[in-house]
């Protein structure tokens, strides 16, 4: 499948030795056979819970809800990257091996954020295109009706923090019972209105968005945001903040909270921008 693409591209690499230039040869041309099918998200509007934790004074509260719409169309893989596709990156030395063998045609699982980024980088070199992880906002817009608000309770009691802890614990307990981590074939969880397969199934997808803590001081109106990019958002049937080097989301399940069932990959393809066109021109 992708091997066809490789055969086409390798001589170009050999001659020009500049992946960017090789990539520039492709736009406009038909996609090499076997490249993952893409969906171009043209229009989407959702009610979006801003990511991150929100504090008003000392009180943990829900992040604001916003109506958001797509401002610029983008292309995203119709299905998740499979174990076979990831395996080719491993063979090529672009990705680290999986912890355990997986069926080639199943969505790859057991992937940490660094693995996902490495795969995107390798796949970009391989195809001469720019592939990357979606942002949390892009993923949510692509998920559309499959996007889930991650606010589980409205309780935010400045005097008694335990009320929110208990409400969250109970809500997470109710939510967690449904997710069976057993890997399922591509398409098992159906498609959404954009034709994307398995959004919100039992494989969460890494995004590029970092953990944020927003703080609003109701006395001074001061706002601050602290970002921690050692923790990224994995999206699925609920938003999960995961340490970037975790491959197994169940690791460390001692603490309260239900982790994702599995971690995997779905990439966005960037259309060649002005910079790439310029580089292409210089290269030629």
């Amino acid at each position: 499948m992708l091997a066809n693409g490789k055969k086409t591209l390798l001589p170009l690499f050999a001659v020009l030795s500049l992946p960017l230039v090789a990539g520039a040869a492709l736009p406009g041309a038909a996609e090499p056979a076997g490249l993952p099918e893409l969906v171009r998200i043209e229009e989407s509007s959702i009610t979006y819970r801003l990511p991150g934790e929100y504090l008003v004074g000392r009180t943990a509260t829900n992040a604001p809800l916003e109506k958001i719409s797509l401002t610029r169309p983008f292309e995203i893989m119709r299905r998740q990257v499979t174990a076979g596709e990831y395996g080719r990156c491993v063979e090529a030395g672009g990705c680290l091996a999986l912890d355990a063998p997986q069926a080639a045609d199943m969505p790859v699982v057991g992937i940490n954020w660094h693995d996902a980024v490495a795969y995107a980088a390798w796949f970009s070199r391989e195809t001469g295109e720019t592939w990357r992880l979606p942002t949390d906002r892009e993923w949510s817009l692509a998920a559309g009706s499959r996007y889930r608000d991650d606010a589980l309770t409205d309780i935010a009691d400045a005097q008694d923090p335990s009320r929110r802890w208990i409400a969250l614990y109970e809500a997470e307990t109710a939510r967690g019972a449904d997710v069976d981590p057993t890997p399922r074939p591509v398409g098992h969880f159906g498609s959404n209105e954009h034709g994307l397969l398995d959004m919100g199934g039992n494989v969460w997808e890494w995004t590029d968005s970092c953990y944020l803590r927003h703080r609003f001081d109701p006395v001074t109106d001061a706002e601050s945001v602290v970002e921690n990019c050692g923790i990224r958002i994995a999206q699925g049937s609920h938003r999960a903040y995961m340490t970037t080097f975790f491959r197994d989301p169940k690791a460390g399940a001692c603490s309260v909270g239900i982790p994702p069932a599995n971690l995997g990959i779905r990439l966005v393809r960037d259309e060649p921008g002005a910079l790439q066109v310029l580089k292409t021109w210089i290269g030629l």
């Binding site: 504090l55 004074g57 009180t59 923090p161 703080r215 601050s224």
Partner: peptide, 8 residues
């Protein structure tokens, strides 16, 4: 009690 919440 939390005297001050996490902040920069």
């Amino acid at each position: 009690m939390q005297v001050s919440a996490p902040a920069p």
